[in-house]
Design a protein around this nucleic acid. Sequence first.
DNA 1: AATGCTCCAGCTGAGC
DNA 2: GCTCAGCTGGAGCATT
Lengths: 204, 204, 204, 204
Amino acid sequence: MGNENDSQVMLRSITDRLINVERQIRDLKEDQKDIRAEAKSHGFDVSALNKVVKDYFKSDMQKAREEEIEAISDVYKANLGMLGGTPLGEAARSRLNAMSKPKHAPAQQPDDADDTAPAPELEPEQTINAEDIHAAKQRGRDDALAGKKILDNPYVSGDPRRAAWDAGWCESMDSDGMDIPDAWKPKKKPKKGDEPEDGKGGEG
Amino acid sequence: MGNENDSQVMLRSITDRLINVERQIRDLKEDQKDIRAEAKSHGFDVSALNKVVKDYFKSDMQKAREEEIEAISDVYKANLGMLGGTPLGEAARSRLNAMSKPKHAPAQQPDDADDTAPAPELEPEQTINAEDIHAAKQRGRDDALAGKKILDNPYVSGDPRRAAWDAGWCESMDSDGMDIPDAWKPKKKPKKGDEPEDGKGGEG
Amino acid sequence: MGNENDSQVMLRSITDRLINVERQIRDLKEDQKDIRAEAKSHGFDVSALNKVVKDYFKSDMQKAREEEIEAISDVYKANLGMLGGTPLGEAARSRLNAMSKPKHAPAQQPDDADDTAPAPELEPEQTINAEDIHAAKQRGRDDALAGKKILDNPYVSGDPRRAAWDAGWCESMDSDGMDIPDAWKPKKKPKKGDEPEDGKGGEG
Amino acid sequence: MGNENDSQVMLRSITDRLINVERQIRDLKEDQKDIRAEAKSHGFDVSALNKVVKDYFKSDMQKAREEEIEAISDVYKANLGMLGGTPLGEAARSRLNAMSKPKHAPAQQPDDADDTAPAPELEPEQTINAEDIHAAKQRGRDDALAGKKILDNPYVSGDPRRAAWDAGWCESMDSDGMDIPDAWKPKKKPKKGDEPEDGKGGEG
DNA sequence: AATGCTCCAGCTGAGC
DNA sequence: GCTCAGCTGGAGCATT
């Protein structure tokens, strides 16, 4: 008889605790709203603040995975001609640079670069036409086949030919055949990261 | 009496159309699943593909707003010491460069930079300690007050002092007083953009 | 110079508070997970528990609005022949009973009901065929036109003709013409309700 | 060389198809918006319409699972005294009636009910106080122990004692000891149902 | 245990 | 200015 009503007692215990926790969460969400309203009234960009907080709780693996997605999607866009004049992002560059042995090309010296072209600077008044873009893309393809790395893009930032060269280079990543290039594949999955002990960075 | 049952007829018309549309949507979502499964089986990174598609439908204003959030959150992080060794992103740099007249500083020549220090290169074997970081941050503050621009960061990419200088520079953005700096504020809201007519980019 | 860095201080204050609150919320969500896991391990139905908690925090107005949606959707289904053998729900009945003066019918006595038919009981072995269903629906239409109320459905619960009568009655709600019946329209909007002080009910 | 660029071709095929499907979905969602706006302008309750459509696509198993959750949560509420004057829902009644052999009680005749009390009708002007409620709840407990079924609730709908009797009856469901009553446990899982071939129901 | 799907709520942009 | 619907992101739930 002592264990009578055990499950009723447990039911009450569980629901009480659930309700209690839920109430606290709702209160805290109200607090959040208040803080955000205060921030907004002081002129802060609330979306940016939210991003700061969100990133604060992101684990390194999550960040790494996000960068990988960004990088691979850039490569896809390059191959699809969807970069729309935007060159590859930094994440894509470093990833491609790190992993790709793009071709059957022999190890080459970066110095060999200038045997093809001297150094295509963008002159102040220079106008770039479709033909230039096309040439830059072709040069990207050739350079990739010649063993150049993605970081060897000869065009400066801001030059529309830079994106075209990138696109051409990326295309050639795939040209040796049947299989998906490694740079196109996902690497590994992120794990759920614990809370940062101290995310304040280290400038001490 | 001729208009009898009008609302019933309309009810049926509306529900039939809603059900029909809903059915089509569900079918298309099934198609999506199939395509994604096919892509995955071929080794593609499905998340990256999703990002490509998503970006394809993003309007320019949406993209601009996202970049702005990224930029402002970087500035906030810099001021909070939360960059964690990561220097400002490109979006933040260009934004800060574009909008900030950080101080009451007179127009100065970027060339004046080297009156403070010659050119802090990162030597191969050089080790950076906390003191160096601190000095770099202080230098960032000073440079900002001296009218330097965010793009004048003297440290190269990869140098941990680069982030510290950025952080110091950003701090000084605020030092002239009471109000929120313009660079901290949201600018304007993006409007919902229509579908791209041709997003394939323009390399011809 | 005393107000120097005000916005920086405020930025830190806001982000610290936001991060702190966020951390507490995350901890509480972990607690929720633990409690639910415990409940599940004891054999409780976690979804049902969630519903209990959810309903606990629902305001009366929210509940009323939900009931209204349920009621109106039942009426719509009845008119569309989509009840599929299910009679109107209680909410729909009480709503229809409360608001509808369905027709130009004179005030009548519910007692008049039996002048049409004695009392259609469902006999144990009785089989209902499509013709019976059709007749019941027609009777529902007639009864509605005769001024009967939705609660005057002569068929007992469990009898398939009950749903048909409901459907017929609902159809006639609309037969007098052009406009949407009042019972088809939404009434008013619920407000966000505050937390219940004591929802334990009152059986003393 | 024939299979050169295979993965590029596939990439384009996949993204093109994904974009195409996505575009169709977006168009259909626009259509939905239009239809809903039209419905609203005609006075329909859009939320109720949405519910109609949603229910249309629900499988029988989904509906059954939802009813089960409703039923079990009602039982939980009854045990917690959270029904707040609302008697058990129909789903809960039928579930409890179907599955429960509540106790070690011998098979009894429902007719025995009236040996306890004649027939507690609710008189028009009768006022129910806390004591009555308490007595009704106790009677529910006793009746459960005596082998009465949940459907044997002697109080009529609308009588506040009805809910109290239900609550008492449910309490006794658990009184024989240690383990969770079967009626408290989830039964089985619903499967994802395919689209209904013809959901119009069968009134001929 | 891990993954994917579905649902929900909170947030954002539009409309009166 | 407030309210409302659409949407996106996250969390729960089911599955393998």
